[in-house]
């Protein structure tokens, strides 16, 4: 159980870097959905008392089984959802609503299908720079379109593009407003395995050029190791807790090739896999007997606010 408030073992002498985001004793409790056999008014705690600090420019990833509430935590950071107790502090201020300082890259891409790729990025640029003229907006947009290798697809609608290309637009939209914190919600889960590696490397390059702090949620252990400075492991929900945070001491810039040959890679990977296997859900529910039936609905409710799901 390493708790990170003592940031002594961070990569790249991150210890003296400024605090970018503080996750301060966050607990999330949902009302139990109707029809799940429970009494109305019953509540269900997804995770409790999660606390860790993220330093400026750091890439931190959260890994855990479905239902541990990692997407819920990301939604709370984004301001889409509210914590039941505790809070998130970004740049000295508590997060209360979504904002351009915390851009999200969605698993489902969340590109507006009625806008072209260019316009999907441009709406974000316009929000960040409401005082800019049309040509200025276009120029800035084009810069990020080119950086993500989307040149030539500007006028296409997202439906015409592959998953990989769509997420490139999503990444361009997130980076183009120069956010303080970037929140990645399983960003590569819907991209085919071959393209995934390419886009991961492109995103790494984008991140290193910017000075954004990144919080990512994923199921993919290799992806976590390739991209992260630190990896946070969550125990199983309900009442999931932050089990530990491990450092990934692979020098940057990293390539996949380099990564798999590094002994640090096998060390970290084995550590995480051992953790995940030991927390595997048993069909009989031996690890988490209480509230077992609720864990599945919990993962669904991370995408919708529970109030909405109830009606």
């Amino acid at each position: 159980m390493s708790n990170n408030s003592e940031a002594s073992h961070l990569n790249h002498s991150a210890a003296d870097r400024k605090l970018a985001m503080k996750v301060d004793h966050v607990t999330k409790i949902f009302p139990v959905l109707k029809g799940s056999g429970a009494k109305t008014g019953d509540t269900f705690c997804v995770f409790k008392d999660v606390k860790f600090d993220v330093r400026e420019g750091e890439f931190i990833t959260m890994v855990g089984h479905s239902g541990c509430g990692k997407s819920t935590l990301l939604n709370i950071m984004a301001g889409f959802d509210k914590p039941s107790t505790g809070g998130i502090i970004v740049d000295g201020k508590e997060v209360t609503e979504p904002g351009l300082d915390r851009m999200v890259v969605f698993q489902s891409f969340a590109l507006m299908p009625w806008l072209t790729c260019f316009d999907n990025v441009r709406v974000a640029v316009r929000s960040a720079h409401p005082d800019w003229s049309g040509p200025e907006l276009d120029e800035h947009t084009q810069k990020y379109i080119d950086m993500m290798g989307l040149t030539g697809s500007e006028k296409k609608r997202p439906a015409l593009l592959s998953g990989g290309m769509r997420q490139r637009v999503g990444i361009a939209r997130a980076f183009c407003v120069n956010p303080k914190v970037l929140l990645l919600d399983e960003p590569f889960a819907q991209i085919d395995a071959l393209t995934r590696g390419v886009i991961q490397e492109e995103m790494m390059a984008m991140w290193q050029r910017s000075n954004a702090t990144v919080f990512m949620v994923t199921h993919d252990v290799d992806e976590a190791i390739l991209l992260s400075d630190r990896i946070a492991l969550m125990s199983n929900g309900p009442e999931a807790e932050l089990a530990e945070i491990i450092d990934v001491n692979i020098p940057r810039p990293r390539t996949r090739q380099q990564m798999i040959e590094s002994p640090e890679y096998s060390r970290v990977r084995n550590h995480i896999l051992r953790f995940l296997i030991s927390h595997q859900k048993q069909p009989g529910g031996s690890t988490e007997p209480a509230g077992k039936a609720l864990t599945d609905s919990a993962d669904e409710s991370t995408n919708e606010t529970p109030q909405k799901a109830e009606v």
Partner: peptide, 8 residues
Amino acid sequence: RVARLLQF
């Protein structure tokens, strides 16, 4: 959510 994120 994107609209909220982009402060529309």
